[in-house]
Amino acid sequence: MSNGAFDELGAKVQRAQSVVREIRGVGRVGGISVEVDAENRLVALHHPDADIIMAAYRAALRDKQPQLDEAMRDVLSDPDTQAITSFVDSNAAPTQAEPAHPAQTLDDDTYFHSIRQDPLGRNR
């Protein structure tokens, strides 16, 4: 594959990623409305008890994290995984053609953190 073909493929991937970042799904059941992004992350919850529900959701995320860390410990400590992580970190800078927006950078940071936590993509 030539450099031009790689560049073209890269541009297609960037366009698709841009569109995917904006995708939202909304579900309404009874008096509850939820919104998810393209990666099935909960981005909005509309309900009179939304604050309490979100607090429970965040508590569940905190509770599962040590379990996930332990399950991934051997993979993440492997030298090959560390080399891949270093490569991804060093090549994750935004391009000049598309400056990063703070929210986009946060999403990218979250995505790369998820790769470090689950490099095989089993929990995505």
Rank of each mutant, 00 (worst) to 15 (best):
M1V: 10
M1F: 03
A5L: 11
F6S: 09
G10H: 01
G10R: 08
G10E: 04
A11S: 05
A11Y: 02
V13G: 05
Q14C: 05
R15A: 14
R15Y: 03
A16T: 11
Q17A: 14
S18F: 01
V19S: 08
V19M: 07
V20S: 07
R21L: 04
E22S: 09
I23M: 15
R24K: 09
V26G: 03
G30I: 01
G31A: 10
I32Y: 00
I32D: 01
S33Q: 14
V34L: 03
E35C: 04
E35Q: 05
V36E: 05
D37G: 08
A38C: 03
A38I: 02
V43R: 06
L45R: 02
L45A: 03
H46W: 00
P48Q: 15
D49F: 02
A50R: 12
D51K: 12
D51M: 06
I52Y: 02
Y57M: 05
Y57G: 05
R58T: 04
A59T: 10
A59P: 00
A60K: 08
L61K: 12
L61N: 11
L61F: 00
D63Q: 15
D63Y: 08
K64G: 07
K64P: 03
Q65L: 15
D69C: 07
D69N: 15
M72R: 08
R73Q: 06
L76S: 14
S77W: 01
S77T: 10
D78L: 04
D78W: 03
P79F: 01
D80H: 06
T81H: 03
T85V: 13
T85Y: 02
F87Q: 07
V88D: 04
N91V: 04
A93D: 12
P94Y: 05
T95S: 11
T95A: 10
Q96D: 11
Q96R: 11
A97C: 03
E98G: 00
P99A: 11
H101F: 09
H101A: 14
H101T: 15
P102A: 14
P102K: 13
Q104Y: 01
Q104I: 07
T105N: 07
T105G: 13
T105L: 15
T105C: 07
D107E: 15
D107K: 12
D108L: 14
D109L: 14
D109M: 13
F112A: 08
F112S: 06
S114F: 00
I115G: 04
Q117H: 00
L120D: 06
G121E: 01
R122N: 06
N123G: 05
